[in-house]
Each structure stands twice: as structure tokens, then as C-alpha cells.
């Protein structure tokens, strides 16, 4: 991935700089957990390289993966709304590099500068809508042996 993550691309340069000023470089080793279901959603990430698996805790068996995210993608949106708790868990599949952003500061930035906030939230909604669409498509079970599931 040589281009910027879409989120950064979407922001005007001044806004982008303000956001990146809050970002820390983070490395996650293979298998490490970025967060767990129910934990405090006090940060989010822009994945720069590697894969992150989103999983669900099921007692007595390995956590099933519901989706994976990779380079360029935004990881986490539970930080936007109270109660700021993660709905899923996240685990690094192979080494992961990411920009980590502190949720409270970013929310404050949005509150202080509605134009910045609007642009950022618009982008987040786009990400969420995209995932929702993807989820719906997967619900169709398109590659099922016969007929591709319910119409």
C-alpha cells in the first residue's frame, strides 16, 4: 500500500495534519490482541500493513473470525458513541503496523471544529455503510452449493 488510507485521503490537508499529530505508530506482533469484546473503546487504528481479524468470543472453542481488515482500512468505530465499548475482539494475524488514534482527543477535535468533525464522521459513516453492505452480501451466502441462499 503506497497510497494513504482512504480516511486520510478524504480529509483536507490541514485536517489531516491535525489528526496525524494525535497519531502514534504502533506495532502488534503476530497473534497479539488489539482489543477484546466489551473492553473500553478508547482508541482506533488505521492499519498500515498486516491483517487484523475481528472475532467473537465463544466459550470452549477458538474465537470464530467474522471479518478481517487490512492495510488502508480503519479499525474500530465503537469509540464514536457511548458507551464506548468494543462489540467484537481484534487480533493481529501476522505482524501489524498501524497508526493508533486516541478516541477522546479525536472526539474533542470534532466538537471544537464542526467542519473537521463533519468530514471525519462522514467518512466513518461511509466505512460503516460499506461494512454493512458487505455483511448483507455475505448473508446471501452467494457461493453456496445451490442457488446462492435466500433471494
Amino acid at each position: 500500500m503506497t497510497t494513504l488510507p482512504p480516511l486520510l485521503d478524504a480529509l483536507p490537508e490541514a485536517h489531516r495534519d491535525r489528526l496525524l499529530a494525535l497519531a502514534h505508530d504502533r506495532d502488534f506482533p503476530d497473534g497479539s490482541r488489539l482489543f477484546d469484546e466489551g473492553g473500553p473503546a478508547d482508541r482506533f487504528w488505521l492499519v498500515r500493513s498486516g491483517e487484523v481479524a475481528l472475532d467473537v468470543y465463544v466459550p470452549g472453542r477458538p474465537a470464530p473470525v467474522v471479518e478481517t481488515l487490512g492495510a488502508g482500512q480503519q479499525l474500530g468505530w465503537s469509540w464514536i458513541f457511548p458507551p464506548y465499548r468494543w462489540h467484537l475482539g481484534a487480533r493481529a494475524v501476522g505482524p501489524v503496523r498501524a497508526w493508533e488514534l486516541p478516541a477522546a482527543e479525536v472526539r474533542q477535535l470534532c466538537a471544537d471544529d464542526p467542519e473537521f468533525g463533519y468530514t471525519l464522521m462522514r467518512h466513518c459513516v461511509e466505512v460503516i455503510a460499506d461494512r454493512l453492505q458487505a455483511t448483507r452480501i455475505r448473508l446471501l451466502d452467494l457461493y453456496a452449493p445451490v442457488g446462492g441462499g435466500p433471494p
Binding site: P6, E51, R61, E67, T68, L69, Q73, A134, D141
Partner: peptide, 21 residues
């Protein structure tokens, strides 16, 4: 893949998500 098995270490999700990668 849509439905990973426990050994799968690759990507999970719809094929369009790969466009971002």
C-alpha cells in the same frame, strides 16, 4: 473467505474488501 475454519489465517470478508488492499 466468508466462513473461515480454525486453520484459516487468511482474510475473512467479501471479495470487494480486498480492493482496499
Amino acid at each position: 473467505v466468508d466462513q473461515p475454519d480454525p486453520t484459516w489465517r487468511g482474510t475473512v470478508g467479501v471479495v470487494t474488501a480486498l480492493l482496499d488492499r
